[in-house]
């Protein structure tokens, strides 16, 4: 536990089964991201206080041992197929006991956050976030350069604007604008 935390032995198998069930799947996207997401989740749990880590692992074991009560036969969670695992988690999600739903929500947040930040998922959904970040940072560099040559900066709270670099209509247009900004920077 503590800052050396890692999923070990059967705990890792339970965590992996949970990630495998909660991660997104699309028939058209064939890449298997399970282990990468599991590593991310492990990294997040590593940042938890030790008591929270113990609780997190205890929750995994509770899922493994008690989830047969949620239906789908007597097998522990890790021995179930994807459909059964999902059915059990859906039963938890629809539980009338708010605490059970809330715990499931916590486990799901880290899987979902990691999964939808994977480059393959972003690319599949047509969200070029990394390229967008880079293009925006370079565009801003250009605006800041322009700022340096401006005689007077508008007083707060007025907007600084982007005069001479990009009109408002194309401010968020990364294609033409980024290229233009890069050209202006001599790259």
């Amino acid at each position: 536990m503590g800052r050396n935390f890692s999923f070990k032995g059967h705990t890792r198998r339970i965590a992996r089964a949970l990630v495998d069930t909660m991660m997104p799947r699309w028939p058209e996207l064939e890449v298997d991201l399970t282990d990468r997401i599991l590593d991310d989740v492990e990294g997040v749990v590593r940042g938890f206080p030790a008591a929270f880590q113990v609780g997190y692992v205890a929750g995994l074991w509770a899922l493994e041992a008690a989830s047969p009560l949620l239906g789908g036969g007597p097998q522990p969670f890790t021995r179930c197929d994807l459909e059964t695992r999902e059915r059990r988690l859906r039963a938890l999600q629809d539980s009338k006991v708010p605490q059970l739903r809330q715990v499931l929500l916590l486990y799901g947040v880290f899987v979902t956050a990691s999964a939808y930040a994977q480059p393959e998922v972003e690319a599949f959904l047509g969200v070029p976030r990394r390229a967008w970040r880079d293009a925006r940072a370079r565009f801003r560099e250009r605006l800041v350069q322009m700022e340096a040559s401006r005689p007077l900066r508008p007083a707060t709270p007025e907007a600084l604007g982007s005069h001479g670099v990009a009109p408002a209509a194309t401010y968020l247009d990364e294609g033409t604008l980024a290229a233009e900004a890069l050209r202006a920077m001599g790259e």
């Binding site: 991660m23 997104p24 979902t112 956050a113």
Partner: peptide, 25 residues
């Protein structure tokens, strides 16, 4: 919010959430 936080906002998981996130844009 970025994609991953939009996905988190739905408080769902797995294939059902994946189908909904096709509409992200």
């Amino acid at each position: 919010i970025p994609l991953m936080f939009t996905a988190v906002a739905f408080s769902d998981f797995g294939r059902r959430l994946a189908e909904r996130m096709r509409d992200y844009h």
